[in-house]
């Protein structure tokens, strides 16, 4: 996969911080590029992406794991980057909103545009990454799984209808709730 410039992390800039605890070395892959750098033990992945790698498309909404704005894919799984330590990501693969589109928008991004699934755009990267996890799943997703995933992100602007339509356009939803055993 070729990485467009916007998707590639900036060469990490390590600030001259007087951090009181140990720094850790991390080697990880971010949007297909290898990143090798030192991080403070306590640095959150969200801050690492935004402040050190200039990937500011990942947004920080609550730092309590509740809003989902900071969702990224870690080894293909949607996770809260605000509840993930950068130091714990060594050897792992991170994908952010910047890593989705090539020249044209990624199908999930396109679906958001098609269905007016965003207004201010702040929660959007988190939603797109959450839905991308399901988009990339080979087997169909049950109705219940889709709702589980969508309820993991909060939007304050749209009233959700466009987001739900975008998700249904870009995720293969099982017609019958066969996998639904709740």
């Amino acid at each position: 996969m070729t990485i467009k410039k916007a998707a590639a992390p900036r060469s990490p800039v390590t600030p001259r911080l007087v951090e009181p605890t140990a720094w850790r070395h991390v080697d990880l892959e971010v949007n297909g590029s290898t990143v090798s750098t030192e991080v403070e033990s306590r640095l959150l992945l969200s801050d690492f992406l935004r402040e050190r790698l200039a990937l500011t498309g990942t947004h920080v909404g609550c730092e309590q794991g509740a809003c989902g704005a900071c969702t990224v894919l870690l080894d293909g799984r949607a996770v809260r980057s605000c509840l993930t330590l950068a130091a714990a990501c060594t050897g792992r693969e991170v994908r952010t909103i910047e890593g989705l589109a090539e020249d044209s928008l990624h199908p999930v991004q396109q679906a958001f545009h098609d269905h007016h699934g965003l207004q201010c755009g702040f929660c959007t990267p988190g939603f797109v990454m959450s839905i991308t996890e399901l988009h990339e799943r080979e087997e169909p997703v049950s109705e219940d799984e889709l709702m589980d995933q969508l309820c993991g992100n909060i939007c304050r602007c749209t009233g959700y209808r466009g987001i739900e339509r975008a998700a249904r356009q870009s995720v293969r939803v099982a017609t019958e709730g066969g996998a639904d055993d709740e």
């Binding site: 916007a6 935004r50 990937l55 500011t56 498309g57 990942t58 947004h59 920080v60 952010t96 909103i97 910047e98 989705l100 589109a101 928008l105 991004q109 958001f112 545009h113 007016h116 965003l118 755009g121 702040f122 959007t124 990267p125 797109v128």
Partner: peptide, 18 residues
């Protein structure tokens, strides 16, 4: 269709914290 969408969808929005 909204012209602001493309930038925001690519993670290229510029919010104050960016």
């Amino acid at each position: 269709p909204r012209v602001e969408d493309d930038r925001l969808l690519r993670g290229q929005g510029r919010f104050v914290d960016d």
